[in-house]
Design a protein around this nucleic acid. Structure first.
Lengths: 126, 126
DNA sequence: ATCATATTCAACCATATGGTTGAATATGAT
DNA sequence: ATCATATTCAACCATATGGTTGAATATGAT
């Protein structure tokens, strides 16, 4: 059942609500990264990137392994699962929406008497 | 493929990063609600709730139908699908994690020589 | 016309957020 | 011991966020 308390979800979704942090997670999906490596792609100070990393860490989305003077970060996926589970409740809504859309397209298609290929663009006057 | 530009995801995840707003979505999952109905469960002013509703609306998560003096809100699920798709990239990470965990449990189980049912709670001294 | 109801607006406030810079800390290399 | 590298800390700043209150707006009911 995986208990999701709302404060945890607040922290997780908040952490995901920033493009820099999502990009960092994307980077960590490829492999482990030091703080410096995580910061490198971004046009901001190391201190700023360090703060983002701490937000991710606080949300439980990454783990930090201090090896000497470098800190190696790795992806910690379980909080993403919580977020996914929360979203899962709403899945039927968008699948419904898509099904309805598909039916409309089918009906539309059936109503159209086999258009013998659309004309090439620009061959018919406006 | 559903293009997800990062600014859109920022807005969506940010909207989801607040318990009040998630609860409102939960309410709308049951059925349509007026602004007043959406605000009612919360210990905050109508104006504050109204702001939350506007955040959800700006993220495209709800639609508003103005009927006379009441505004009827309804769930708009597609942005949730975008969020879900973003998360989907990471699904393999948590399923991996769960698989590993399950294997550990199996190995553990196999190693244990058939414990003949756990004792009832409280029947053995501390 | 008058009054009640539903909602927003505007001004305000405290705190959080995302950034900066310069100094501090801790480890590694010579 | 000395210097370089990796990272954080502290102080600061502008803006965003989530809340408040009182007034305004717009519609509905009588």
């Amino acid at each position: 059942m995986v208990e999701y308390d709302s404060q945890t979800l607040d922290t997780i979704f908040h952490a995901l609500g920033d493009a820099t942090r999502r990009a960092m997670l994307g980077d960590l999906a490829v492999g482990d990264r030091t703080v410096g490596e995580l910061a490198e792609p971004f046009a901001m100070s190391l201190a700023a990137a360090s703060k983002h990393i701490k937000v991710l860490e606080a949300a439980g989305l990454i783990r930090r392994d201090v090896r000497g003077r470098t800190h190696v970060c790795s992806l910690e996926p379980m909080p993403l699962m919580s977020a996914d589970q929360w979203l899962g409740v709403y899945r039927r809504f968008w699948t419904n929406r898509l099904d309805t859309l598909e039916q409309l397209l089918r009906a539309d298609d059936a109503a159209t008497p086999h258009p013998p290929k659309p004309p090439l663009p620009g061959t018919e006057g406006e």
